[in-house]
Computed example of a mutant assay.
Amino acid sequence: MRGEPERPRRGRDRDGDRGSGTVHALTLTLVLGVLLLTVLLLAQAGIATHRAGKAADLAALAAADTARGLVAGDPCGTAERVARDNGALLELCELVEPGRVVVDVRTTVVLDGPLARIGAARGVSRAGPPEVSGAP
């Protein structure tokens, strides 16, 4: 038996890559999970930014109508109510001189969860009467 070639052993020492497929599958699953979580967080931030912009637009339009006298009340009070009804906080409301019928509005939507660290989503809008052609 001394002249016979040695056969490879069957056992743990034979294949050092045994089980590596499981490790690769777990790693791939973890990477895909992190990517999915990142995409979901970015989508949540985008939705909050859209909500802040929508609230700013609606608040500015309502405040401009109030400033022009189409609706009774305080323009900035109306803007605050409309922003709140749309899930945002009114951060700024200014009547623009000289006519004080154009309104600048800035709103914020607070982000919660892990996105709270980056701050609130903001929306900015300006509204007023349409320009009359031929006016100076």
Rank of each mutant, 00 (worst) to 15 (best):
R2I: 15
R2M: 12
G3V: 09
E4F: 07
E4T: 12
P5G: 13
E6W: 05
E6K: 11
E6R: 15
R7M: 09
P8A: 08
R9Y: 01
R9Q: 12
G11L: 01
G11P: 04
R12Y: 07
D15Y: 11
G16H: 14
R18L: 15
R18E: 08
R18C: 14
T22V: 13
T22N: 04
V23W: 06
A25V: 12
T27H: 02
T27K: 03
T27G: 14
T27N: 04
T29H: 01
T29M: 12
T29K: 02
L30Y: 00
V31M: 11
V31R: 03
L32K: 02
L32S: 11
G33M: 08
G33W: 01
V34A: 10
V34H: 01
L35E: 06
L36G: 15
L37E: 02
T38W: 14
T38M: 09
V39D: 06
V39W: 01
V39R: 09
L40G: 10
Q44W: 00
A45Y: 01
G46E: 13
H50G: 14
H50I: 06
G53Q: 11
K54Y: 15
K54C: 09
D57A: 10
A59F: 01
A59R: 01
A60Q: 00
L61I: 03
A62G: 09
A62H: 01
A62N: 04
A62R: 01
A63C: 02
A63G: 02
A64N: 03
A64R: 03
D65T: 00
T66K: 00
T66A: 08
A67T: 01
A67I: 03
A67D: 03
R68L: 08
R68W: 08
G69D: 00
A72G: 03
G73W: 15
G73M: 06
C76Q: 07
C76T: 05
C76A: 05
G77I: 14
E80H: 14
D85P: 01
N86R: 13
G87K: 05
A88P: 02
A88G: 04
L89N: 06
L89Y: 03
L89W: 15
L89E: 12
L90I: 06
L90W: 07
E91M: 08
E94C: 07
V96N: 05
P98I: 06
P98R: 12
G99R: 13
R100N: 15
R100V: 02
V101W: 01
V103S: 02
V103L: 02
D104C: 01
T107S: 03
T107P: 05
V109F: 05
V109E: 07
D112G: 14
D112F: 03
A116N: 11
R117E: 04
R117G: 15
R117D: 10
I118Y: 14
I118W: 13
A120C: 12
R122K: 09
G123T: 04
G123Q: 07
S125M: 00
S125F: 00
R126P: 00
G128M: 04
P130D: 11
E131N: 02
V132C: 05
V132N: 08
V132Y: 04
V132L: 12
S133I: 15
S133C: 09
A135R: 05
